[in-house]
Amino acid sequence: MTASDNQKRAALDPWDIGFGVVVFIGSLLAIFVWFPNDMRSGFFHVNQIGRSEPGDAFFPTVLAATLCLLSGLQLTLSILRGSPKVAAEAQGSLTASNMKFLALFAIISIAGLTIMYALGPLTAWAMRALGLIDLEYRYLTDTAPYKYLGYVTGGFLMTTALIALTEGRLRRVSIITVLTVIIVAIVIFDKLLTNVLLPPNAEF
C-alpha cells in the first residue's frame, strides 16, 4: 500500500459510511416498521400447552438488532478511524460506469424476460381475436409452437443483446451459439425431463 493510499484510507470514505448508514437505517426500519406489520406471532407467544416461547418475530428481531449494533460500530469506526490509528477495512465503490452498466443490463434483461413472459399469451390472444384459434393460452402451454414462442424469442433476444453489449458487435457465431443452446435447453428441459415446463408456461 502506498503513502497516498494510506492518506486516502485515513480520510472519510463516503462508501464506507454510506454502507453503514444504509444498514443502520434498514435494520431500524425492519424492527419498527417491517416486522410489526408482516408477522402474525410476536417476539414471544404462548403455545398450545400454555407455555411462553419465542415467537416468529424473536429471531428476526435479534438479527436485525445485531445488524443495527454492527452497523453502528462500523459507522463509529469509519468516523474515528484517524484517531486510534486503525487501518480501514477494504472498501470498494460503485462508479458511474458500474451504474451505467447495471442500467443497460437491467433494460436488456427486463425487456427479454417481459417478451419471454408475454409473447405466447399475446400471440394466443391475437389469434383468438382473429378467430384463428379457439383456446386461451393456458390451454396451449404444452402445445408447440405456442409453448416455445416466449422462451425462444425472449431468451434469444436477451442473450444476443448481452453478447452484443459485451463484444460491441453481433457476429454470426454468436447467433448460431445462442440458437444451439436454446435448442439444447428445449431438448433437455422440455423433451427429456418430465413434469417440467419451460418459462413462462408454469405461470398460466
Partner: peptide, 14 residues
C-alpha cells in the same frame, strides 16, 4: 457468460 445466464434462468424456473 450471457449463455450461462440464460441456462441458469431456465434451470431455476424449471
Amino acid at each position: 457468460l450471457p449463455v450461462v445466464l440464460l441456462i441458469t434462468l431456465t434451470a431455476v424456473y424449471a
